[in-house]
Write a protein that binds this DNA or RNA. Sequence first.
DNA 1: GATGAATGAGGCTTCATTCAT
DNA 2: AATGAATGAAGCCTCATTCAT
Lengths: 194, 194, 194, 194
Amino acid sequence: MARTIDDNKIARIRQAALEMVVNSGYGGASISSIAQNAGVAVGYLYRFYPGKSELVHDLFYRTLKDLADKLEQILDDKHSFEEVLESLIRSIFEKANKQPEQIKFLYVLMHDYSFRMENEMRDRIYRLCRLMIEKGMKVGLIGPEIDEEQIFLLSVAYPLQFINMRMKNLFYQSDLSEKEIAATYSICLKSLSA
Amino acid sequence: MARTIDDNKIARIRQAALEMVVNSGYGGASISSIAQNAGVAVGYLYRFYPGKSELVHDLFYRTLKDLADKLEQILDDKHSFEEVLESLIRSIFEKANKQPEQIKFLYVLMHDYSFRMENEMRDRIYRLCRLMIEKGMKVGLIGPEIDEEQIFLLSVAYPLQFINMRMKNLFYQSDLSEKEIAATYSICLKSLSA
Amino acid sequence: MARTIDDNKIARIRQAALEMVVNSGYGGASISSIAQNAGVAVGYLYRFYPGKSELVHDLFYRTLKDLADKLEQILDDKHSFEEVLESLIRSIFEKANKQPEQIKFLYVLMHDYSFRMENEMRDRIYRLCRLMIEKGMKVGLIGPEIDEEQIFLLSVAYPLQFINMRMKNLFYQSDLSEKEIAATYSICLKSLSA
Amino acid sequence: MARTIDDNKIARIRQAALEMVVNSGYGGASISSIAQNAGVAVGYLYRFYPGKSELVHDLFYRTLKDLADKLEQILDDKHSFEEVLESLIRSIFEKANKQPEQIKFLYVLMHDYSFRMENEMRDRIYRLCRLMIEKGMKVGLIGPEIDEEQIFLLSVAYPLQFINMRMKNLFYQSDLSEKEIAATYSICLKSLSA
DNA sequence: GATGAATGAGGCTTCATTCAT
DNA sequence: AATGAATGAAGCCTCATTCAT
């Protein structure tokens, strides 16, 4: 009888929040600017989230979950360690080209001391890194000193760093094409090798 | 004499600002809390900086300059590429152990889309990376595909990532001792190698 | 049939509003919480009242009218002044035991400078007090200096005060039984006596 | 060196808050209206109180304390029960003539279910009522059935009721002069008498 | 008739900045 | 020179009210 809820609107709120946090930081992303960019009233946002903090934390969680889901799927689908690594890096680059805000957002919040990932998510990612290590060890592509931390840093954090450095146009380049995927993969593989 | 007192105060302001930004984020670092922690009056702070933004940007600049100075000095002092790389990584780890706030501060702001380094600084760092590459190429320790970007990412950003991951205690470890320096150096070297 | 359902709903709205105002104050009684407690939609409420203020004012009016009706009925039924006074006090106590919200509501709004009773109601209550005085004077139970104001204060406001002080448990007691009715009646009678 | 704090301003804030609460209720007394009436900036208010609630509770406490102090002083100064009762009632009337807002404020909040007096204050007032009873009992002016509650209701709450009824001009009168003091005293004394 | 999604004015509070002392 | 009292814009959030369905 009443208007039905507009799924579009909540999606727009999330997208606007993502963009504002990336461009202005958490503090600079005001609720009113998010609402304005999303084209909704300020109050509407509070039907879905009890506050700004919860909104951004939820976005952080969703973005991390997307990443973990992707990695899990890759580990399921791909058989060789090299395929897994290449697919992971490729999927991160592809997302960076298709949805750059999501990658920027992940990058920004992962490096913020106020946003820690929840234990459950951390453990999940830890386990997925463990699986990668096992895959790599079996075929001797990974040195015995590599642990979960380093897998994460090199196969996830390093590509993110690279991509964002390009997006920030730090050193005069901004391409994110096959050439960059190959270079990143090569560096990552070398760094992990025995 | 009056000069000395002032130098002290402004140094205290900078230290307090650094700590507040690291511990509470840019938004949470209020001018009044910075002044209080520094033991100066709010108004005093405004004699040196036109506003909060300029204060933090100046700190960011100074921290980057410290890093660049260090790298420059290492490039002057050390002759082999391996020595340079090892010294750089070691100096970052040492600073992390002695002045963790500075390392955290650098880490946090380097990854913030609202804080970009000035062109002059960027060019200086670019040139220093260029010098490292040349040193490495000459002795064949660096592959031909490695550019300034990757040098920066692997010899500076990667150690920072590693250190802060430990400081955040992401994967249940927090040590930053010789063992970690060696492992970081090893990974970095492998990733750059031809 | 439709009429019956509506009567039910509007009655539930009124009851919910009463309770919310008593328990959370006028400001804390939000329209949506009233609607929720009444089990109706927010919009439904606006079919009967143009706004929150009108709803609460109407409740205030109705509660006062109940009191006036009761007093009028007592004046009709009872012959002696003492009977009238006793019955009035007793009926207030009984309502406090059966429907404490109504008594609390009356108490709260009667003492609020933003809620004044309408002139018509004021005049009606004034006339009823006049009748009580006349009844009391005739048998010499009321002193010549007693006017309508004092009758109202002592036979209505004082019992309300007493009851609510007990309900607030101000001085460690909360009983509202025969003993309290008798004591209140006694005090009231003494205070009015010649 | 900096401006010295302006005691006048905080007094004006308190007075403005008192008036706003009386005239518009707690909810209607907005911080901005209080600040405006006091002639200070909104933020200035927060130098003295952490929030609106604390401001109003403090005013409530101060007003109750004034009353208790006055009663205590009267009990010290005056010897006979009659003198005490008369002085108390007179002092309430005098305050009503000189500072009507304070009396209205006390009246409004004493009857609000959200504002309860603190235990310490309650106990103090309880003890003072106890002292009055003892004074009255000794000379047989108070009936044996009178307890602290009734003393409070009749010697404090009743005069407040009377005064505020006049101030609201409920029954067409608004005088608060000697005649009214005498009538109130007479009624109060009769109601307590053995 | 009924619903509840959607709005936005307005409330509380914070804090960067100014300036009288 | 140095202080910190004072300001008020701007942020977060609530909720009375409207209106599409």
